[in-house]
């Protein structure tokens, strides 16, 4: 079918099939040449850049308020408390899972409730009539107070627009014996399941986002987040 080619230096005129193949090869070659520019041209000002710009615009508006706000970066798995645009404290979560992405499309959310609520300790008023036992409030050495260690490490955050975030403590590594660690695992799982069941009954839906932090960080985050504070979610696009 093909003419035997004897001399490469003087190629024979190409037949139709040869021509078709050559054209295809040329197209492929040109495609290769243009690929870098095609790739770089994909969406240069499209959704990711626009989202980034929107985040920055919203952050600027929040920073101007002079209130503490929180920036949640999903891609770097970090959560930063900020004020006036500069970071106050950073938290790192070890796990993140997204149940529903729809509510995360809007990047800014206002915290309206933490559940369970922080522990309330009511001060006891001493009985009057024993003035010799009284000391000034500023000199009192009472030990009734609420500290960060009293805060829950497993809780849910409810936002104005319906967004719900669940914060959970990471499993503690136990260097104890196998039986002990097995028992603690069973206990942790039971606590987690009962909490999930209780919240599912109450909320009738799963949280939109789950974040897992160390127990101490989860408590510190609970302490630091005030109801009414703003949360800015950067999807990392």
């Amino acid at each position: 079918m093909f003419t035997k080619q004897t001399d490469h230096r003087t190629p024979l005129p190409l037949r139709p099939l040869h021509r078709c193949g050559t054209i295809l090869s040329l197209v492929a070659f040109l495609w290769l040449l243009f690929v870098p520019s095609v790739v770089s041209a994909i969406d240069p000002e499209g959704p990711p850049a626009a989202a980034k710009k929107k985040i920055l615009q919203l952050e600027l508006a929040l920073a101007k308020k002079g209130e503490v706000y929180t920036l949640l970066n999903l891609s770097s798995q970090g959560l930063i408390l900020k004020i006036k645009g500069f970071p106050l404290k950073q938290f790192h979560f070890s796990e993140i899972s997204l149940e529903k992405a729809e509510r995360l499309r809007e990047p800014v959310h206002r915290l309206i409730k933490k559940y369970p609520p922080p522990p309330a300790v009511e001060k006891e008023i001493p009985l009057s009539g024993a003035p010799e036992t009284r000391v000034s409030s500023l000199l009192s050495t009472e030990t009734v107070f609420v500290s960060v260690g009293d805060m829950p490490s497993r809780y849910r955050l409810y936002f104005e627009d319906g967004l719900m975030i669940s914060i959970e403590p990471a499993r503690r590594e136990c260097n104890c014996g196998k039986i002990h660690s097995g028992l603690s695992l069973i206990k942790e799982t039971a606590v987690s399941l009962s909490w999930e069941a209780e919240r599912l009954l109450f909320d009738r839906r799963f949280p939109d986002l789950r974040l897992v932090l160390s127990e101490e960080e989860a408590q510190a985050l609970f302490w630091s987040l005030s109801e009414g504070a703003w949360l800015l979610i950067d999807s990392g696009s």
């Binding site: 959704p47 999903l74 891609s75 149940e99 499309r105």
Partner: peptide, 11 residues
């Protein structure tokens, strides 16, 4: 974006 993440999967 994160909106396209499958439910329950890590980011």
């Amino acid at each position: 974006t994160a909106a396209s993440l499958a439910p329950g999967k890590p980011a």
